[in-house]
Amino acid sequence: MIPLSWYMALAAILFCIGVCGFLTRRNVIVMFLSIELMLNGVNLNLVALSHFLESLRGQAFTFFIITVAAAEAAIGLGIAISLYRSRRTVHVDTINQLKG
């Protein structure tokens, strides 16, 4: 039996990798992947806790998060495509028309 703390540590590590990726990477698609990684850290946390606390709420919550993440991906990639069409790039360093 793997103890709960291992799951939670893995979830926290996944989440931190996601945060670091989001803050350091400069490609919109990779930044978006990092956000998905953060969400999966949360999902792992919720499922593990739900199992060890013997309450189903965590698992129900996970289903909602997965569903919303799918909708979010659809909108995010749609925006990325419209950005690519107008700029021919998805690098955040070149997306700098708005500043001040």
Partner: peptide, 21 residues
């Protein structure tokens, strides 16, 4: 607008992930 949208989207999703954790 697409620049504004992608910035809003990335920041909003990041905030949601923080909130969820």
């Amino acid at each position: 607008t697409s620049e504004a949208a992608i910035k809003y989207f990335l920041m909003g999703s990041f905030a949601s992930a923080l909130l969820l954790f």
